[in-house]
Amino acid sequence: MSHPTNPEHTSTGPVLVTGCSSGIGAATADLLVKAGHTVYATARRTDTLTELESAGARVLPLDVTSEESMTAAVRAVEAEHGRVGALVNNAGYGEYGTIEETDLDKVRQMFETNVFGLSRMVQLVLPAMRAAGTGRIVNIGSMGGRFTWPVGGYYHATKYAVEAITDALRNEVRPFGIHVSLIEPGLIRTRFEGTAMGSEAAAEAQSSPYAALLTASASATGSGYANPVLATGPESVARVVLKAVESGRPRSRYVVTPAARAMIAARTLGGDRVWDGIVRQQFKA
């Protein structure tokens, strides 16, 4: 179902979305196109963007771990439009494992994508946004930026970092007419869960002192994503991103899925004792 073109979209300017090869990024770019926006869909490999290009998105190569690639993408949009109207920082993935056993080189790579790539994209688009006195930045965080499961500590750390960066940024750029929103999805059925479970499986070994925990974590992850009450499709996140891009007064935070809201509330209101009890029940620890 297509959305009617809103004439006010022209004031938003072009929307640059990172990580559009699949999942949330692909759904977001597609919905924004249908809503009448000029959308630049990006990914490391543009051959993953053919469907979005056919739908009307403009495609650009963009690797958020490469300074040259990030600079080139932003310059391409600015060369045609003068500025990026809205940046949707979606690129990210999860590297899972215990704190003791996870390869820290892999953790550093994850931080490069989830935290430093996001931050550098913000730095690159802001000068033109400030000069124009308007702009939108939408960071895709996670409910995992508000609480932490065992075996996910390093991934959660990247999302906690996105929380802090977004909070600081929102207040830094408000005087320049720039709105900043954080999207906090719950369990979203994308390729993410396969990556997460794969990284757990790679770390699991019979000789590991955490073998039972890793097995329980993989089981909980699989059952959680398979549960239609707990998990939903990427289109639900795309609809919220559209609100953040188009709203005259966007919220600072959007939590996606009732289950995510419930878990955030349990962690925030219950304190450590309640949360640790939930963890023990979930992982039978």
Score class of each variant (00 low, 15 high):
97 G>P: 06
97 G>E: 01
98 T>D: 04
98 T>S: 14
99 I>D: 00
99 I>G: 00
100 E>K: 09
101 E>C: 00
102 T>F: 10
102 T>Y: 10
103 D>F: 10
103 D>K: 10
104 L>Y: 10
105 D>W: 09
105 D>M: 08
105 D>T: 13
105 D>Y: 06
106 K>R: 15
106 K>A: 13
107 V>I: 14
108 R>G: 11
108 R>T: 14
108 R>P: 01
109 Q>W: 02
111 F>D: 04
112 E>H: 02
113 T>M: 10
113 T>W: 05
114 N>S: 04
114 N>T: 12
115 V>L: 05
116 F>S: 01
116 F>W: 15
117 G>Q: 04
118 L>W: 04
118 L>T: 07
118 L>I: 00
119 S>A: 14
120 R>T: 14
121 M>Y: 07
121 M>Q: 08
122 V>R: 03
124 L>K: 09
124 L>N: 06
125 V>K: 04
126 L>K: 05
127 P>A: 02
128 A>V: 03
128 A>D: 11
128 A>G: 09
129 M>D: 02
130 R>P: 03
130 R>A: 09
132 A>N: 00
135 G>E: 08
135 G>P: 03
136 R>Q: 02
136 R>D: 02
136 R>L: 01
136 R>E: 10
136 R>H: 07
137 I>G: 12
137 I>Y: 06
138 V>F: 04
139 N>C: 02
139 N>V: 01
140 I>W: 14
141 G>Q: 11
142 S>P: 11
142 S>Q: 11
143 M>H: 07
143 M>R: 09
143 M>Q: 15
145 G>R: 02
146 R>T: 12
147 F>V: 07
147 F>D: 05
147 F>I: 02
147 F>H: 11
149 W>C: 05
150 P>S: 07
152 G>P: 00
152 G>C: 05
152 G>R: 04
152 G>Q: 13
153 G>S: 13
154 Y>C: 03
155 Y>A: 00
156 H>P: 09
158 T>G: 08
159 K>S: 00
161 A>G: 09
161 A>H: 12
161 A>S: 13
162 V>I: 15
163 E>D: 14
165 I>M: 15
165 I>G: 08
166 T>W: 06
167 D>M: 00
167 D>Q: 15
168 A>P: 01
169 L>N: 12
170 R>K: 13
171 N>H: 15
173 V>G: 13
173 V>D: 06
175 P>V: 12
176 F>C: 05
176 F>M: 03
177 G>N: 10
177 G>H: 06
177 G>V: 05
178 I>Y: 02
179 H>Q: 15
179 H>V: 03
179 H>G: 13
180 V>N: 10
180 V>W: 05
181 S>Y: 04
182 L>N: 01
183 I>P: 09
184 E>W: 06
186 G>E: 03
186 G>L: 11
187 L>P: 10
187 L>F: 15
187 L>M: 14
188 I>H: 11
189 R>F: 05
189 R>H: 05
